[in-house]
């Protein structure tokens, strides 16, 4: 049933592992600012649709896609969407 494996809807906490592969550090405490609505919130709180190949990270306030992280073999690729700023406080 692998082809039927639907994406699971979780939050940014569950994307910590993939984001670690991008940043080499924990990124879930970083504040992401959405270019769509201006909402600023920790990436841990974003809406995340995750499956074996990708994590789609959306703004919880307006649902725009902030960015997508794709597994690429043992590597990883981050495709930016409406993520306007990253802030560490």
């Amino acid at each position: 049933m692998r082809a039927d494996n639907a994406a699971s809807i979780v939050d940014g906490n569950a994307a910590a592992g993939m984001l670690w592969d991008v940043f080499g550090a924990d990124a879930t405490t970083l504040i992401g600012v959405c270019a769509g609505c201006g909402d600023a919130a920790p990436l841990a709180g974003a809406v995340v649709e995750i499956d074996e190949s990708a994590a789609i990270v959306r703004c919880r306030a307006c649902t725009h896609t902030l960015f997508t992280v794709l597994r690429d073999g043992d590597g990883v690729r981050m495709v930016l969407g409406m993520l306007q700023e990253i802030v560490r406080r």
Binding site: G12, N13, A16, G17, D26, T28, T29, A44, G45
Partner: peptide, 9 residues
């Protein structure tokens, strides 16, 4: 196993 992960929760 990969981790520990997460600094928020």
């Amino acid at each position: 196993v990969k981790g520990p992960l997460g600094g928020y929760f």
